[in-house]
Design a protein around this nucleic acid. Structure first.
Lengths: 112, 112
DNA sequence: GCCTCATTGCTATAGTTCTGGAAATATGGA
DNA sequence: TCCATATTTCCAGAACTATAGCAATGAGGC
């Protein structure tokens, strides 16, 4: 994974409005959400939201598809997986006994 | 977990120099690394590195301890665990069958 | 006291990011 | 074709962030 891609993803998420959008899309899951709905949910103007959706999409964190007059957005799970992996890659110089607490922790994160 | 804390952590990591520092500290694991060593490794001046270490520490991602003349830094695994958890919290509105690919992926990330 | 390691404050310059108004574009329906 | 709705693009000022030089400070060891 290239550093510039990682920086783009982290920068995209390091913004209250975009983090809210991303988490909203994580929460709704496979259904996704239209740009207008998203703007409403996070309480930001349409153009600002569109800009932020574009930034998240350029970073590869979300994808979109036009559906009639709407454009629907989803999170890209693969991208988040890669990002999480990158952050803890080569952990502890390959000594599992030190790294284990982090691995265990990840298994314990309450998801769904 | 508070949003401002998450934003601080993501902002701290969304910077090539700081990401390099963070990954270096992840890689060395429990041994940690002294400020001077880190500056050398990433090829940045001492004061710039010190500033960046301060930003990572304020974000809660790393901790430090003075050891004689040196100040040694480590990653805080707990902080990274919380961050990863926050990003995928409430995933898929509680429908595991959709979310499963992401959970599985996290288990597959090669660590140590 | 003197040396080294590290941090801090100040400074300036350069560059990036945020925001939302206005205008443009896309789609579907009458 | 004309209109309404949905979304995106363009733009520019304001705000923020990064970098690194220099000097000063503090902490520890000899």
């Amino acid at each position: 994974m290239e550093t510039s891609v990682v920086i783009a993803a982290l920068s995209a998420l390091a913004h209250p409005g975009r983090l809210a959008i991303y988490r909203l899309l994580v929460a709704v899951g496979g259904v996704g959400s239209a740009a207008g709905e998203i703007a409403n949910s996070v309480g930001a103007p349409a153009n600002t939201t569109s800009t932020n959706l574009g930034i998240l999409q350029t970073a590869g964190l979300i994808t979109s598809r036009r559906e009639g007059r709407h454009v629907r957005y989803w999170t890209d799970h693969e991208a988040m997986r890669n990002l999480l992996g990158y952050l803890i890659e080569d952990c502890c110089g390959g000594r599992p006994e030190i790294c284990a607490p982090l691995i265990g922790a990840r298994a314990r994160v309450p998801v769904c």
